[in-house]
């Protein structure tokens, strides 16, 4: 009998935990935006600005919560039941994974303008002040003695853009083909001493720990790091060509319908396309889509020749070919036998 009392105590404790924290927050007064690593500062400001907009549209108050982590890890969490009303991730393929399990409607990318990417970015080099290793372009990265910091493409969305930017350059060289591209990547990753799991981790390794000669980074991340962490300590190098990185956004239909938050979720994403939303994005070093806002911040974003994900046959193909288990990335980093 005493055992039963104890068992009841245990059950009560668990129940307590469930009632305190387990109930999903009441609908229509909150949104959860599950996002990737380098958008922390961007969405902090967006989430502060949006409630006023929503208030003026509907007269209701709202709070927006944010969750940040590696893009793949965040998509995985949503798949596992993280109640995200909207996702704002680094790659379309991560949202495709949600669509494949029915959480997001198929054809989600056509629901919002610009393939559902309200802002873009690109991949640039962050080097130490004075550029001591004279790094100007992609071939300089594989010179002997140059140490490159980039996160792990298996876990980081930004790292996949890094990888594809390097590959795209190699493919566009005279006589460039899959084999020469793979050879270049193999040499590139041989120069990498640390593979962090996320873009922010790599930035911290480069900036705080002083490791490496060059950091491959999102343009927004590089600009932020230069402004926030090391006035005069770092320089940004724009390579001759890079990738047009398009981080997409989507309403998670399954969750929004269940929680009744669809209207707010859609308004939230539309806000990103509004002049105010675009201005916030530009302030946080993301390239805005709106030409008027873009003109205002033109000095911040130098023009750069770019290629898109279609160079690699779209995300589904790039993902399967390069980043799946046994793919090209596994091959070039396989332990030498």
């Amino acid at each position: 009998m005493r055992m039963q009392i104890c068992a009841k105590a245990v059950a009560a404790a668990l129940l307590l935990a469930i009632t305190i924290g387990g109930r999903p927050a009441a609908a229509q007064d909150s949104l959860l935006n599950v996002s990737y690593d380098p958008t922390r500062e961007l969405y902090r400001e967006v989430n502060r600005a949006f409630p006023a907009v929503w208030q003026s549209q509907t007269g209701r108050s709202i709070t927006v919560n944010a969750s940040h982590g590696g893009s793949g890890a965040q998509a995985r969490a949503v798949l596992d039941g993280l109640q995200a009303d909207v996702v704002t991730l680094a790659l379309a393929s991560d949202i495709d994974a949600l669509a494949a399990r029915g959480l997001v409607a198929k054809g989600w990318q056509a629901r919002l303008p610009e393939q559902s990417t309200p802002y873009t970015s690109t991949i640039v080099f962050l080097v130490r002040s004075g550029n001591p290793k004279a790094i100007r372009d992609w071939p300089d990265l594989v010179r002997p003695g140059v140490r490159v910091i980039t996160p792990n493409p298996k876990t980081s969305g930004g790292a996949r853009w890094n990888y594809l930017a390097a590959l795209g350059w190699a493919l566009r060289q005279p006589g460039g083909d899959e084999a020469s591209g793979e050879a270049y990547l193999r040499r590139l990753f041989a120069q990498v001493p640390v593979l962090d799991t996320g873009a922010r981790g790599a930035t911290n390794t480069f900036v705080q720990r002083g490791l490496g000669d060059v950091l491959l980074a999102w343009e927004n991340e590089a600009l932020l790091a230069r402004e926030e962490l090391g006035a005069g300590k770092f320089e940004i190098v724009y390579p001759s060509v890079s990738v047009l990185a398009e981080p997409p956004v989507a309403v998670v239909d399954a969750v929004a319908d269940k929680r009744g938050s669809r209207a707010a979720a859609e308004a939230y994403l539309r806000f990103l396309y509004s002049p105010d939303g675009q201005d916030i994005a530009a302030r946080h070093y993301f390239r805005p889509r709106d030409p008027v806002v873009a003109a205002r911040y033109a000095d911040r974003f130098p023009p750069l020749p770019t290629f898109g994900i279609d160079l690699f046959g779209g995300w589904a193909q790039a993902q399967a070919r390069h980043f799946a288990d046994g793919g090209v990335f596994d091959r070039i980093t396989a332990p030498a036998k």
Binding site: G70, G72, A73, A75, R76, L79, A97, N152, K154, T155, V192, P193, V194, L195, D196, T197, F323, A324, D325, D330, T333, A334, P335
Partner: peptide, 27 residues
């Protein structure tokens, strides 16, 4: 360990990290 290891596949990548990596690939 993940803070202090280089996490390079085949060189400084520990097994628990590989579990996390697989998890994050939906595997």
């Amino acid at each position: 360990v993940i803070f202090i290891a280089g996490n390079m596949p085949g060189l400084t990548e520990i097994a628990p990290l590989l579990i996390v990596i697989r998890l994050e690939q939906f595997d």
